[in-house]
Design a protein around this nucleic acid. Structure first.
Lengths: 357, 357
DNA sequence: CTGTTAGCGCTTTCAT
DNA sequence: ATGAAAGCGCTAACAG
């Protein structure tokens, strides 16, 4: 394996032309007779020539690769985001570096630096845990950045960063309202990791819904937890034991909700008769557990796809050193230029199943 | 964002040294006084210097990136493989390009070519759907390749390729035997995609178990299906309708098994009373559906981790043009050199839950 | 220990 | 329509 690589020089020599001509042929730039081009391409093909995108990257300052930074591929939420993002990127001829941060800000910074060294043409950064200062530095050092599920005030002189957000406040309100509509008054909330913006926004929506219905809000009914089945299981067990008065639970995500279901089974509380449960995300699992989970669905694939599309728009539309002006203007024009606006907001949708009918 | 990048030249000038000295400092190669190194590093840091790994790649012919090719990230099986592989790669300073093939051989070939152009240092290729000829070509054109769940006879003059396999024949036998032990004689098999090696091997194990127990094998009891819940649902519905005599079902994977569970619910057949079901993989979902799934667990994270470790060993251990000799010898020496052997086999483990007690 | 000279394989710019 | 020269940012191989 791996004998000496064929270079453009080799092909040029074999075809009896200059390297430039070969370059023109493989890049399909017009200035070449279709005869020579066909001949060169055939010879290149025969020799198994594979142009080095790394040499090409050095010369053009474009690598044709993008970074996609997420907390964890194994989280079904993000694996769908990845699919959406990759699909869009590949469709336009880009490759993507997938980077996990494991929710660790140090690791996040490390992968971002690594992407910078790789000279990626742009980055989609999901659920960043970086503080505003560090995040500004990151944005400044990459040629294009789109943030998913994380806001950032543009610093002065900085092009507005692309942003794709979930309307989590609405989501939290929606989920809670559904329970209130069902007659529940003692509604708890498992809020997920304290560092999660989604968690905080959903909590805000939860409180807003309670307030709007004139239901008093008991802070002791809210508890943080790790964002997985085990975390939900433990937190729900504790919360339900400490506050047996609760008749309903809004959960940070479906994994946590499934953990809560397990806790109910352990504690002998029937769902939904004794306790109603609402999750978030609508992962595959949600429809398949017993009883099937009522949940707030988020269009995860679209989230990734839109973020990537936004990034590609910015890469294509901001050819050189153009300032943020055009972007800000566009995004204020309304919906006509959806593909060019700098902020996208996705609204969740309540899927009513058996855990909170 | 993205003003002019700082180059090694800029740093050299600012520090009043040559580029080479800067290079020595950042690469921590001995031949430099610790004073100058410290000073250079400080200046580089201050200037926000980020060495271009693409220029470096051109010069060194090593990119520090690896390819990981899988059918689909959103498949929970592969997302765990990805985690294992990435963890090992990152621990040794490599980045990985993740590529989905969507089980499409054309796309698989395309991503492999793209990785070749990117000059990755090696590739882990999972569940390749390529025929032997094309696969040999792929192996020949990459500097190091590890195959997961796909075998390949080494061609003459070719270094043996690294291989990590699941013992799927054992798995199929194990699952079937468990059902036979439970008294079942009419055992069906949903064999997954015809192109899947795992599917074929599990089928082989299934038939072997039947034969070993002297149970006659009815080919009509085996049916292929797409490897997801829906595929399982449809195939199980058809199979159980056409052959109501079946009392047990071995399923290609857990997703298919969950589909079969759904089909049973539709058809009014209780599980496990009327139909016993065994799945494969033990994904998260398996323990959480009702009733919890009996399944053959595969150490997915380990699968990815071992494959990547094997790849890194081959990259490190095969410095130049050394032939396959050393490898073949090592792998025959036994288990002492596990980290250097060229083939790893992982055995699945039966997890008995409620669908086939 | 430090600097100099050549590339790595491609594209760009300018001739022809 | 084609070719020649220069350079992208870094390291390898020598000198000193």
């Amino acid at each position: 394996m791996g004998r000496k690589r064929v270079t453009i020089e080799d092909v040029a020599r074999a075809a009896g032309v200059s390297r430039q001509t070969v370059s023109r042929a493989i890049n399909d730039l017009g200035e070449i007779s279709s005869q020579t081009r066909a001949r060169v391409l055939r010879i290149a093909e025969e020799m198994g020539y594979r142009p080095s995108s790394i040499a090409r990257g050095l010369a053009t300052r474009r690598t044709g690769t993008l970074g996609l930074v997420i907390p964890d591929v194994a989280n079904p939420f993000f694996s769908d985001v990845v699919r959406g993002a990759e699909h869009v990127a590949h469709a336009q001829g880009y490759n993507v570096f997938l980077c996990n941060t494991d929710e660790d800000p140090e690791r996040e910074l490390a992968v971002l630096h690594s992407l910078e060294e790789k000279r990626v043409d742009g980055v989609v950064l999901c659920s960043s845990r970086l503080d505003d200062g560090k995040l500004h530095a990151v944005v400044a050092s990459h040629s294009a950045v789109v943030l998913v599920n994380r806001d950032l005030e543009p610093a002065s002189g900085e092009a507005a960063v692309g942003v794709v957000m979930l309307d989590d406040v609405s989501g939290g309100r929606m989920a809670t309202q559904h329970l209130l509509d069902g007659g529940h008054r003692a509604v708890g909330f498992l809020s997920g990791p304290p560092a999660s913006r989604s968690g905080r926004c959903r909590a805000e929506g939860y409180r807003a819904a309670l307030a709007a219905s004139g239901v008093s809000h008991n802070p002791a009914w809210t508890a943080p937890c790790p964002a997985d089945v085990d975390g939900g299981h433990r937190a729900a067990t504790e919360l339900l034991t400490a506050h047996p008065e609760l008749t309903a639970l809004v959960c940070y995500n479906d994994l946590v909700a499934v953990g809560a279901l397990r806790a109910c089974a352990d504690l002998g509380r029937r769902v939904p008769a004794d306790l109603a449960v609402v999750g978030f995300d609508d992962i595959l699992l949600a429809a398949l557990v017993t009883p099937p989970l009522t949940t707030c669905r988020v269009a995860r694939y679209d989230l990734g796809a839109q973020a990537m599309q936004l990034l590609l728009n910015r890469i294509a539309g901001c050819p050189a050193e153009e300032g943020p002006t055009q972007w800000e203007r566009r995004s204020e024009e309304g919906d006509g230029h959806r593909s060019l606006c700098a902020e996208v907001v996705l609204r969740p949708e309540l899927i009513v199943r058996a855990t909170a009918p």
